[in-house]
Design a protein around this nucleic acid. Structure first.
Lengths: 141, 141
DNA sequence: ATAGTAGGTATAGATTAGAGACCTAACGCC
DNA sequence: GGCGTTAGGTCTCTAATCTATACCTACTAT
């Protein structure tokens, strides 16, 4: 854990030394794409196997069709998923992970595991903070 | 990699079996917080050690003060970073990772490493897609 | 006296997300 | 024939969110 901190620190220092424009670094680029409400969620849904449009919509009930379609298109553009259309009537459109998309799964699994293990701690921190704010308000700060 | 897919698939199936409200699952909760343009970036900056407000602003030149302040507050609320004010005049405010925040670094390192290794592939995919769209446009699709 | 540093907040404008209606084409029901 | 459903989306309008910019207090250095 401390080792990870050191390694990340070293990477950041290295980017800075290289004079790498922070707005253009690979990590920023990745995060700007998959760092939204839906991308990672859809990728995890596809991890188990290919799914069709409406199956994804049912699996993630609170995504609008608009965002689903848009997010899938971005993931396709970035080469993380495949979109295959069967020319039946009506057409069936199936989405699946590409090898590149699959290669994202191990790091993603790490993040998911962390989230499961530490969710309670985050909740507790939020409640502590809410309590402090309430107390401060009560005193009229 | 395929193993990670299977594990993620199993987790998703498990959540579904538990009748877990998808909007309330721990992973969603995490992603809604740190899945924005700045949170992960600021956490990586703090990995190497504590930093003050303006040092962070200089390290991430394209963040506005407003978003910097807001994002730091959210991270503090979630217990990922500490905010310590030294009561000098003017006050010095230092931000640092909490143990919880540090525990996020190993999975984050995995993601960063993936981004570095696969950035070229993503770029290539984008260019392929752009070329296809251009070709389709040319034919008048 | 003027400018700069530190750590922000306030406000207005631009961007983006979400809700819901709508579309084509086929199929089943009565 | 008319109605509803499925599939895979698009279109439009509104609501939320981000960005840029100006501003603030209180000190320090020139």
């Amino acid at each position: 854990m401390d080792q990870a901190c050191t390694l990340i620190g070293a990477k950041v220092a290295e980017w800075r030394e290289m004079g790498l424009d922070p707005a253009r670094c690979p990590v920023r680029d990745l995060l700007d794409r998959i760092g939204d409400r839906w991308s990672i969620l859809l990728l995890t849904m596809l991890a188990a196997g290919p799914m069709r449009f409406n199956a994804l919509a049912r699996a993630v009930p609170d995504i609008s069709k608009r965002m689903l379609s848009q997010t899938l298109r971005t993931l396709e553009t970035d080469g993380l998923i495949d979109r295959t259309v069967e020319p039946t009537v009506p057409p069936r459109v199936t989405y699946s992970l590409t090898p590149l998309g699959k290669s994202l799964m191990p790091p993603l699994l790490g993040l998911i595991t962390w989230a499961e293990q530490n969710h309670a701690s985050v909740q507790a921190a939020r409640q502590r903070m809410a309590a402090m704010v309430a107390a401060a308000d009560a005193v009229g700060w």
